[in-house]
Write a protein that binds this DNA or RNA. Structure first.
Lengths: 240, 240
DNA sequence: CGGATGTTTCGGCCGGCGCCGAACTGTCGG
DNA sequence: CCGACAGTTCGGCGCCGGCCGAAACATCCG
């Protein structure tokens, strides 16, 4: 696009979008942003392993193509994924990249925390998220298929007690998608409902975000609260 | 990857995959293959607008990266998308590329046939597919959300009469995803069930594939059969 | 077997883009 | 104000990779 022109129609082609994601440095930044938090340019530079100048160029291009959104805050610039569509595209690419019926290669124990509980864009993932999903299904609050979930009548009431008004969520995004993540090959709760759940749980301090990572830290009091609220089985950590 | 090495672990990175899709010529080939039919190298060359030599190189790379699968047949080589994951990734990229809450720009009337009925990877799309989905929901055979669908008890029986055994489909892929396509912004039936439906309908000659295009041609007898089988309303063509 | 057609391999050209060093802009602190 | 820090812009280097022409290989057909 010639200098000075503005991408008025937001008319990207599929190749332009994919080509933006198709660079190691940019892909690393996007993967880091899949944690759901907005990150500064500097943090993204470290994630990508390139200098700040280079990063700045990448971020500008991705922002112009509407892959990222930026918010100025003092001398920092916070970048985040521009939309759930972008997150989903990256997710789909991850699924292709890891190679279909991937053999579960043993990952180092250092991401044990990640396997236990982490964010995935705007919702929870990891064993905790699976345990929550399982318990909700067991108690008849949710029906899950491979790609989505339905909230039942009883679920409507249950989520209401958590302060989540299911009816008001149906607005723009899918209510309850499921999301197959890399560590466990089973679906967990994403979509609007997944985002709302993460919100509530963070709000109540049951989980806290780890700095500079997608990991979620389970507080001591949080664990018992979660077990009680969702009626998790005592052995939920081993529910692989 | 150095020459002579084999990609044993199928360990692609997200950037490698995206970078393969992120070339105009290759993206055009992939888009053509989203129609679900296997195409020859020559046909793909024409779709991409490059010479056969260039095409050959592209196809080799995409095949090695497991984006495509190839089948020799005489002096032709038929290429198809290697998996539903690949189709979904391309689909997700299309959603990002067309720019979120895209304004419905009026497309030329020449793809009126496409808007009426076409294939989308392995299932039907277009107004006909919407009418079918609507009718199935109306009759209580299916419950649709934004991302997936559930077959009801009555639906199990209904699909049985079409020769589709719902229970046997649940094998590997999602039973019934929904798929938001570009022409109408509403979900239609994809996944295993969508593929099975397209199969049956082609098998019975209600629709026929147009050569070299994703369009599906509605035969005269096929229309009345479809209307009868799915109890489509008389004005289904205008169900935008 | 020889010619036509589909596809691949090889070699070389060339443009685009990712990278960094250096220098500039903007913001916060004292 | 003036340094420190975050981020961007500019310029130039280097290389990867897409493109095609020429030629080889493969397959079908008469």
């Amino acid at each position: 696009m010639p200098a000075g022109m503005v991408n008025i129609a937001s008319g990207n082609t599929i190749a332009e979008v994919a080509s933006l994601i198709g660079d190691a440095a940019r892909a690393n930044m996007l993967a880091a942003l899949m944690g759901g938090q907005a990150l500064t340019a500097g943090e993204l530079a470290r994630h990508a392993g390139v200098t700040p100048q280079t990063t700045s160029g990448h971020l500008a291009r991705m922002t112009e193509a509407r892959l990222l959104a930026v918010e100025k805050q003092g001398r920092h610039r916070y970048y985040r994924l521009a939309s759930a569509e972008v997150a989903q595209a990256i997710h789909a690419l991850m699924a292709v990249a890891s190679g279909g019926p991937k053999r579960h290669r043993p990952v180092g124990p250092k991401d044990e925390a990640l396997r236990l509980a982490r964010t995935c864009y705007d919702h929870m993932a990891g064993r905790l998220a699976l345990a929550v999903a399982d318990a909700l299904v067991r108690d008849g609050h949710l029906v899950l298929s491979d790609e989505a979930g339905f909230v039942t009548e009883s679920g409507r009431g249950f989520f209401g007690t958590l302060g989540i008004d299911v009816a008001s969520l149906r607005a723009r995004r899918p209510l309850c998608r499921t999301c197959l993540d890399w560590s466990e090959r089973r679906p967990h709760i994403a979509g609007q409902l997944g985002a709302a759940l993460l919100d509530r749980v963070l709000e109540r301090g049951w989980l806290t975000r780890a700095p500079e990572s997608r990991a979620l830290h389970l507080t001591r009091a949080g664990e018992s609260s979660l077990v009680a609220a969702f009626r998790l089985p005592p052995d939920w950590r081993g529910t692989t």
